[in-house]
Amino acid sequence: VTLFVALYDYEARTEDDLSAHKGEKFQILNSSEGDWWEARSLTTGETGYIPSNYVAPV
């Protein structure tokens, strides 16, 4: 399991995006899409895309 933590708040801009709150942890499901990674929030269980530069490894 690849875990990352949000460094900043991010507000989803499309229905495919996933909002993130600073300190929230995510499981990365797919990081092969360049700057946008598919992730699952460990807080809400929701999945979507987050900007890779907004997260760091735990």
Score class of each variant (00 low, 15 high):
residue 25 K to C: 14
residue 10 Y to C: 05
residue 31 S to L: 10
residue 23 G to C: 08
residue 57 P to H: 05
residue 50 I to C: 05
residue 25 K to G: 04
residue 10 Y to W: 15
residue 28 I to S: 01
residue 40 R to Q: 07
residue 53 N to W: 15
residue 50 I to F: 03
residue 39 A to E: 00
residue 2 T to L: 13
residue 52 S to L: 05
residue 34 G to H: 11
residue 2 T to H: 11
residue 5 V to S: 03
residue 28 I to D: 00
residue 11 E to K: 11
residue 29 L to S: 05
residue 27 Q to V: 15
residue 23 G to M: 03
residue 16 D to V: 13
residue 12 A to I: 03
residue 20 A to M: 15
residue 55 V to F: 14
residue 13 R to G: 08
residue 9 D to V: 05
residue 15 E to D: 12
residue 3 L to G: 02
residue 41 S to Q: 02
residue 13 R to A: 11
residue 38 E to R: 13
residue 6 A to M: 09
residue 55 V to Y: 02
residue 31 S to N: 12
residue 18 L to A: 01
residue 18 L to F: 05
residue 6 A to R: 00
residue 1 V to Y: 14
residue 35 D to C: 14
residue 35 D to I: 10
residue 51 P to V: 03
residue 16 D to A: 14
residue 47 T to A: 06
residue 53 N to S: 14
residue 56 A to F: 08
residue 22 K to H: 05
residue 12 A to S: 09
residue 47 T to V: 14
residue 28 I to T: 01
residue 24 E to A: 02
residue 58 V to G: 03
residue 27 Q to I: 15
residue 18 L to W: 02
residue 52 S to F: 08
residue 37 W to K: 01
residue 34 G to M: 11
residue 38 E to P: 05
residue 4 F to C: 09
residue 40 R to F: 08
residue 37 W to A: 03
residue 44 T to L: 02
residue 35 D to Q: 10
residue 6 A to D: 00
residue 19 S to W: 06
residue 29 L to D: 04
residue 40 R to E: 04
residue 41 S to L: 03
residue 2 T to K: 12
residue 54 Y to P: 00
residue 23 G to K: 01
residue 8 Y to T: 06
residue 34 G to N: 11
residue 52 S to C: 14
residue 56 A to N: 04
residue 52 S to W: 12
residue 58 V to K: 02
residue 43 T to F: 10
residue 34 G to W: 09
residue 5 V to G: 01
residue 15 E to K: 13
residue 15 E to H: 11
residue 21 H to R: 14
residue 28 I to M: 04
residue 14 T to V: 06
residue 36 W to A: 06
residue 43 T to G: 06
residue 31 S to D: 12
residue 7 L to F: 03
residue 21 H to Y: 14
residue 7 L to T: 04
residue 3 L to D: 05
residue 57 P to R: 07
residue 57 P to C: 08
residue 23 G to L: 03
residue 34 G to E: 12
residue 49 Y to V: 06
residue 23 G to A: 01
residue 57 P to D: 04
residue 5 V to K: 03
residue 55 V to T: 03
residue 25 K to T: 12
residue 29 L to T: 05
residue 30 N to T: 08
residue 55 V to D: 00
residue 1 V to W: 14
residue 17 D to E: 15
residue 8 Y to P: 00
residue 29 L to P: 03
residue 11 E to V: 13
residue 25 K to E: 08
residue 19 S to V: 06
residue 32 S to V: 10
residue 37 W to E: 00
residue 42 L to D: 03
residue 10 Y to T: 02
residue 57 P to E: 08
residue 39 A to Y: 08
residue 17 D to S: 12
residue 17 D to R: 13
residue 47 T to I: 14
residue 55 V to C: 06
residue 58 V to I: 13
residue 41 S to D: 02
residue 24 E to N: 03
residue 20 A to H: 04
residue 39 A to R: 01
residue 28 I to A: 01
residue 8 Y to M: 10
residue 1 V to S: 12
residue 32 S to T: 12
residue 10 Y to P: 00
residue 42 L to K: 03
residue 22 K to C: 09
residue 7 L to Y: 03
residue 7 L to A: 03
residue 17 D to T: 13
residue 53 N to D: 09
residue 37 W to G: 00
residue 15 E to M: 11
residue 26 F to I: 04
residue 6 A to L: 06
residue 31 S to I: 11
residue 11 E to Y: 10
residue 4 F to W: 14
residue 33 E to V: 11
residue 27 Q to G: 02
residue 43 T to M: 10
residue 1 V to Q: 13
residue 51 P to T: 03
residue 51 P to K: 07
residue 29 L to W: 06
residue 30 N to R: 08
residue 9 D to W: 06
residue 15 E to V: 12
